[in-house]
């Protein structure tokens, strides 16, 4: 499709010079416009095709082949197909716990990030001196290099010399330092009941919320700025209290943005690898699926297994997001 475009477009470019946007539906101007458009977009299409689309298709193929890092040289794309990799992935004892961890991490990470982002957007809604500075500060966790911030968090939470445990033991009177990132679960007594709390998982969820709430904050702030003040003014005149104005005037206007944020953040958190790999390395009950893919690939050198696991991840994600979108779309229909 793209290879024959350049030659043709040189002709088209000469002839079309005068017209930027043809108003007529057909004719030579329109055709030359189409050629120029394809020519200009073709570098993008080529690189996306070669470095994104083809590799994705290749993953699907690799997932059904027996390929290891050691026999990579002799492997080729016509190797016999097998279901072994998929079976190994699905029957593995760690698969279901890992999937649950991934789901918990994505759902709570997304939810917390959106709630904090919403609170921040509302708190910074009214103007005050220094608001620009506060807004910029809110965005720092999101833009800073993930390696640097995970390192700082790891140091802060370090049981030996981290500031969190130092404060906890000396100021809040904890019995002993907490190994936030390496303790799988701790017994905490709430109202006399001993409850097992997944410490490391909660810590990485907190980190995820800290790091990604600025994204929600940014979009909700933009949406809030577009909300007309007259509606709230009218509600205030009618005697609606601040919470009522939020519940019945502001929140309904924000709902579409929140829904989009929920989908985007869920997808990104579900796929995210960096944060957990850098914080815990996938230990202490935080092994999400993307970390498993990485371990299959590098530690075990099993390319087929890694591909199969990545494919399973993508399929589960597609199903979850598809279900959510269908439900959401239906609710919209009812509302409309």
């Amino acid at each position: 499709m793209t290879t024959d475009v350049p030659g043709r477009t040189v002709r088209g470019g000469d002839g079309a010079g005068g017209q930027i946007r043809a108003r007529r539906p057909h004719g030579p101007m329109r055709r030359s416009e189409a050629r120029a458009g394809l020519l200009l977009i073709s570098p993008t299409l080529i690189i996306v095709l070669v470095v994104v689309v083809v590799p994705i298709l290749w993953t699907v193929l690799l997932a059904f082949q027996r390929v290891r890092l050691l026999n990579l040289r002799s492997a080729n794309i016509f190797d016999p197909l097998t279901l072994d990799n998929i079976r190994t992935v699905l029957e593995s004892d760690d698969f279901v716990p890992s999937l649950m961890t991934t789901l918990a991490y994505s759902v709570f990470g997304t939810g917390l990030a959106i709630v904090i982002g919403l609170v921040a957007a509302l708190a910074l809604r009214g103007a005050f001196r220094g608001r620009t500075f506060v807004r910029a500060a809110m965005l720092l966790p999101y833009v800073a290099p993930v390696v640097a911030v995970t390192f700082v968090w790891r140091t802060m939470l370090n049981p030996q010399f981290g500031v969190a445990n130092e404060l906890g033991v000396n100021v809040f009177g904890w019995d002993a330092p907490i190994a936030f990132l390496s303790e799988r679960s701790a017994e905490v007594s709430i109202l006399g009941l001993d409850v097992g709390v997944p410490v490391a998982l909660m810590t990485v969820i907190a980190f995820e919320a800290w790091r990604s709430f600025p994204f929600a904050f940014l979009f909700l702030t933009a949406r809030l700025q577009a909300a007309p003040a007259t509606l709230e003014e009218a509600a205030r005149v009618d005697g609606a209290t601040p919470t009522q104005r939020f519940r019945y005037i502001v929140l309904p206007q924000l709902m579409p943005t929140i829904a989009v944020l929920a989908v985007l953040r869920f997808i990104w958190t579900f796929n995210s690898f960096d944060d957990i790999y850098l914080l815990t390395g996938g230990g202490a009950g935080t092994e999400v699926i993307s970390v498993r893919v990485f371990n299959f690939l590098t530690a075990r050198g099993d390319i087929g297994l890694a591909s199969a696991q990545a494919l399973v991840l993508a399929v589960i994600l597609a199903v979850v997001v598809g279900l959510y979108l269908r439900r959401f779309a239906r609710r919209e229909e009812v509302a409309g």
Partner: peptide, 12 residues
């Protein structure tokens, strides 16, 4: 798309 999905074939 999950970047980890791209990671395997690109690595290969």
């Amino acid at each position: 798309f999950p970047s980890i999905l791209l990671a395997v074939p690109l690595f290969v």
